[in-house]
């Protein structure tokens, strides 16, 4: 059960299985929370209580990941030290949303085998079966989302949160435009998936799998590529 997996302490016997799945689930939860925060962005006046609770959850996960070492010290060899001011969490959001937009396997040009939302990554399962309990930080870099999170520094993360709160705080036409610039069509797909979750038995990771097709676009170009699509969404938003 997912909720059980969220406990910080694991029974010794189950450690082999529990530790990696805990990290996975935590990452799933983090991703889900970041998507929710991004959706809060889109609302003119979000439910402040909900936004604050989600943001606190994100902070808590991030804090725990920092303690575990899952958050730092995992820079890929070619990337060098992670720049502190990089908005990686936002980057993840935009990218994953673009993947959802496409809604189909990519052309295979990606060097990432799996999307960031894909929880049961193959290398990880092999890790699971191959050896004794590995600390999260040791095997984590081999899995895909850690390539993402490796670039997520605390500073960058904090900054994205700050942005979120800025938008909660002040709303003017220009900030509205900024918000809309972040809006992506995936919102609708996501909504459907989340709504479909109601009362169903699907585990959250299963549901999240539906969000991200197996292939992913390269993270480089940033999230403002599909301008036509963006315009379309803006139109929808204006209409509603």
């Amino acid at each position: 059960m997912f909720a059980r997996g969220l406990k910080r302490k694991f029974p010794d016997g189950e450690e082999e299985l529990a530790v990696p799945s805990y990290a996975l689930q935590r990452q799933c939860l983090l991703d889900m929370s970041l998507v929710k925060l991004q959706l809060c962005h889109m609302l003119a006046e979000p439910n402040l209580c909900r936004s604050v609770l989600i943001a606190n959850t994100v902070r808590q996960i991030q804090e725990e990941m920092t303690q575990d070492g899952a958050w730092r010290g995992m820079s890929p060899p070619d990337a060098g030290p992670a720049p502190l001011d990089r908005l990686v969490s936002t980057d993840i959001l935009c990218r994953s949303e673009r993947e959802q937009d496409q809604g189909r396997p990519g052309p295979g040009d990606s060097h990432f085998p799996k999307g960031p939302h894909d929880c049961p990554a193959p290398d990880l399962t092999s890790d699971l079966t191959s050896g004794p309990a590995a600390p999260v930080a040791r095997h984590a870099p081999s899995s895909v989302w850690d390539l993402d999170s490796s670039r997520e520094s605390k500073g960058g993360f904090q900054k994205s949160l700050d942005q979120i709160f800025e938008t909660l705080e002040s709303r003017n036409p220009s900030s509205m435009e900024d918000l809309l610039a972040d809006v992506d069509g995936s919102y609708y797909g996501l909504d459907a998936v989340l709504a479909g979750m109601t009362g169903s038995r699907t585990s959250p990771c299963d549901a999240l799998e539906g969000l991200a097709p197996p292939a992913t676009t390269p993270p480089g170009p940033g999230c403002k590529a599909d301008l036509g699509e963006l315009d379309h969404i803006v139109e929808i938003l204006v209409e509603t």
């Binding site: 059960m1 059980r4 889900m32 439910n47 609770l53 109601t198």
Partner: peptide, 15 residues
Amino acid sequence: LRSKLCSLYENDCIF
């Protein structure tokens, strides 16, 4: 519902 909190978070019922 304690064992369902993740789903309830996901579908926003938890709020």
